[in-house]
Amino acid sequence: MTSEAVKVIVRCRPMNEREKALSCKAVISMESARGQCFLQNPAAAGEPPKQFTFDGAYYQEHNTEQIYNEIAYPLVESVTEGYNGTIFAYGQTGSGKSFTMQGVVDPSTQKGIIPRAFEHIFESIQCAENAKFLVRASYLEIYNEDIRDLLGADTKQKLELKEHPEKGVYVKGLSLHTVHSVVQCEQIMETGWRNRAVGYTLMNKDSSRSHSVFTVNVEIYTVGPVEIRIVP
């Protein structure tokens, strides 16, 4: 498998307070070193568990910091070198997508992948030599097959998906916001988060009920001394 290949990992999040109050039992176990996940049917204890293998398997004791360092870090690092990269979280409501991607403030080891990526990008910018960076962010939501700009002047306006021969697929009219620091990125993410379509479910009272895409666009300009030659 090359470094450019798609990789799939699975994470078993810690139980939340509701699950603890209901005395829920874990039916999943993992062998992280092998990327294997085992699912045991509680109604068929005598049967062997179903086995699944992934590029990475992280159990409840693994924190987001470890997942970022092992999985996300190389991808974000390649973005600072001029390549495209995507981290896509998939799962049913309450499965822990927001817990992994946005995380919590305390403990710091559970800070999400998105804020960690902010820190990573701006640390790389500060250490870069002979280069200038333009960093812009956008935040959209897909709800009931409609696309909305969570950072736009009118967050209820429906946007259209278009295709350009050079740019590829893009959202027409999606706003891009220039950011100069981690704090500004976090403020933009918080603004968009408040504009999501949410609704109560049995699994999650703050379920987003939608798909959202936060994009960080990094433009890199190489600068340096200009050599001028005078030919007689």
Score class of each variant (00 low, 15 high):
residue 3 S to R: 07
residue 3 S to H: 03
residue 4 E to I: 05
residue 7 K to F: 04
residue 9 I to Y: 05
residue 9 I to W: 01
residue 10 V to C: 11
residue 11 R to D: 00
residue 12 C to V: 13
residue 13 R to K: 12
residue 15 M to R: 11
residue 17 E to F: 09
residue 23 S to N: 13
residue 24 C to W: 10
residue 26 A to C: 13
residue 26 A to Y: 09
residue 30 M to H: 04
residue 30 M to A: 08
residue 34 R to E: 13
residue 34 R to Y: 11
residue 37 C to L: 15
residue 39 L to T: 05
residue 41 N to D: 14
residue 43 A to G: 10
residue 45 A to R: 14
residue 45 A to Q: 15
residue 48 P to R: 07
residue 54 F to R: 09
residue 54 F to D: 14
residue 54 F to W: 11
residue 55 D to F: 07
residue 56 G to T: 11
residue 57 A to F: 08
residue 57 A to K: 00
residue 59 Y to Q: 13
residue 59 Y to N: 13
residue 60 Q to Y: 08
residue 60 Q to T: 14
residue 62 H to R: 12
residue 65 E to W: 12
residue 65 E to D: 12
residue 66 Q to W: 06
residue 70 E to P: 00
residue 71 I to P: 00
residue 72 A to W: 00
residue 73 Y to V: 03
residue 73 Y to E: 12
residue 74 P to M: 03
residue 74 P to V: 02
residue 75 L to V: 15
residue 77 E to S: 07
residue 77 E to G: 03
residue 79 V to E: 00
residue 79 V to W: 00
residue 80 T to C: 11
residue 81 E to M: 05
residue 84 N to R: 02
residue 85 G to Q: 01
residue 86 T to G: 04
residue 87 I to E: 01
residue 87 I to L: 10
residue 88 F to W: 04
residue 89 A to R: 06
residue 90 Y to S: 06
residue 95 S to F: 00
residue 98 S to N: 07
residue 101 M to V: 08
residue 102 Q to P: 05
residue 105 V to K: 14
residue 106 D to V: 13
residue 107 P to N: 11
residue 107 P to V: 13
residue 110 Q to C: 14
residue 112 G to Y: 09
residue 114 I to G: 05
residue 116 R to F: 10
residue 121 I to G: 05
residue 121 I to W: 09
residue 123 E to H: 15
residue 123 E to L: 14
residue 124 S to P: 01
residue 126 Q to R: 15
residue 126 Q to S: 15
residue 128 A to F: 14
residue 132 K to L: 14
residue 133 F to Y: 15
residue 135 V to E: 12
residue 139 Y to K: 02
residue 140 L to G: 09
residue 141 E to C: 04
residue 142 I to R: 12
residue 146 D to E: 15
residue 148 R to V: 08
residue 149 D to R: 05
residue 150 L to S: 06
residue 153 A to H: 07
residue 153 A to G: 14
residue 156 K to Q: 14
residue 158 K to S: 12
residue 158 K to H: 06
residue 158 K to Q: 10
residue 164 H to N: 09
residue 164 H to G: 03
residue 167 K to I: 04
residue 167 K to D: 01
residue 167 K to M: 08
residue 169 V to P: 04
residue 170 Y to F: 04
residue 171 V to Y: 00
residue 176 L to H: 01
residue 180 H to V: 00
residue 180 H to K: 06
residue 183 V to R: 13
residue 185 C to A: 02
residue 187 Q to L: 09
residue 187 Q to A: 10
residue 190 E to R: 08
residue 190 E to Q: 09
residue 192 G to F: 00
residue 194 R to H: 06
residue 194 R to I: 03
residue 195 N to D: 00
residue 195 N to I: 00
residue 197 A to T: 10
residue 197 A to H: 10
residue 198 V to D: 00
residue 203 M to W: 04
residue 204 N to T: 02
residue 205 K to D: 04
residue 206 D to R: 01
residue 208 S to A: 08
residue 210 S to F: 02
residue 211 H to M: 08
residue 212 S to D: 11
residue 215 T to Q: 11
residue 217 N to G: 04
residue 218 V to I: 11
residue 223 V to R: 09
residue 223 V to W: 02
residue 224 G to Q: 05
residue 224 G to L: 09
residue 231 V to W: 13
residue 232 P to W: 04
